[in-house]
């Protein structure tokens, strides 16, 4: 009954959420629960397959788009100047008056400043560029911006995290707040911190975004996944990054 009331009153749900949140000192990356072999694969840059996407991203960074307008580097210079950006996204986007995630920002630049059509979700190019940008922040603590204009997205994300959905009537919180560390079949349930996206998932045999991972979970809950790039996903990303801080960025992480 209480959960339904909370779901019906989103604002109250987000208030209740704070009380259940994992305390900062107890936040753990999924990295910690991985086997020694998988951890070794992530930390060794010659073994981490995600580094191949990072290299592709570095190429794209300096390559002029088909429109003939400047490459990313033409405006931003060295990508290293964007160190810290991935640790604070999603951010508030003045143009749309809403939260925007890093992939949305890359595509916004591409459309507005490079005059080229946006990259498709989960395309090699978008994953490569976002991996390259995330890589610039590797090791930095996640640092949520204190922009109050992001509060609606935070509240929406917190409410979505706790909302029971799908045929099985499960929520993100039911597993990742209440049952992390336990086993769901072969998997140890992680706390669910998006510290390393885009990341190389062995199950995917490829790199994928946090939205792809969230869609996997929603399908498992027998729910209709949110659309790629939807406001719901950006809100969830904002909340998840708040919930993960100050864990360090691991992009490109490796996960089972």
């Amino acid at each position: 009954m209480r959960r339904l009331a909370a779901a019906a009153l989103g604002a109250f749900a987000s208030l209740a959420a704070v009380a259940d949140e994992i305390p900062q000192a107890e936040r753990r990356s999924g990295f910690d629960a991985m086997s020694a072999e998988t951890r070794a694969m992530q930390v060794d840059d010659t073994a981490n397959p995600g580094l191949l996407w990072v290299q592709d991203g570095a190429d794209l960074w300096t390559r002029a788009p088909a429109s003939g307008r400047p490459a990313c580097a033409g405006c931003h210079g060295e990508a290293a100047t964007l160190r810290g950006v991935a640790a604070r996204y999603p951010a508030f986007d003045e143009a749309s008056g809403a939260a925007i995630d890093l992939q949305g920002r890359i595509n916004h630049c591409r459309r507005e400043h490079q005059g080229d059509p946006p990259y498709g979700h989960e395309s090699r190019e978008l994953l490569a560029l976002s991996a390259y940008l995330g890589f610039q922040s590797r090791g930095l603590p996640i640092a949520p911006p204190r922009d109050p204009r992001l509060d609606p997205a935070r509240a929406q994300g917190a409410a979505l995290f706790r909302e029971r959905i799908g045929q099985l009537g499960l929520s993100c919180a039911a597993c990742h707040d209440d049952n992390h560390g336990r086993r769901l079949g072969a998997a140890t349930i992680p706390q669910g911190h998006p510290t390393g996206y885009p990341l190389y998932r062995l199950e995917w045999q490829g790199l994928g975004s946090v939205q792809r991972r969230l869609r996997n979970c929603m399908t498992g809950m027998r729910a209709e996944p949110f659309a790629y790039g939807s406001a719901e996903f950006v809100a969830l990303e904002r909340y998840l990054m708040d919930r993960a801080a100050p864990l360090p960025i691991e992009t490109p992480a490796v996960r089972p």
């Binding site: 909302e163 029971r164 799908g166 045929q167 009537g169 929603m218 399908t219 027998r222 729910a223 209709e224």
Partner: peptide, 11 residues
């Protein structure tokens, strides 16, 4: 289940 967003195959 009264929960929203049930996948099409399960609705």
């Amino acid at each position: 289940d009264p929960s929203p967003r049930v996948g099409a195959a399960w609705r």
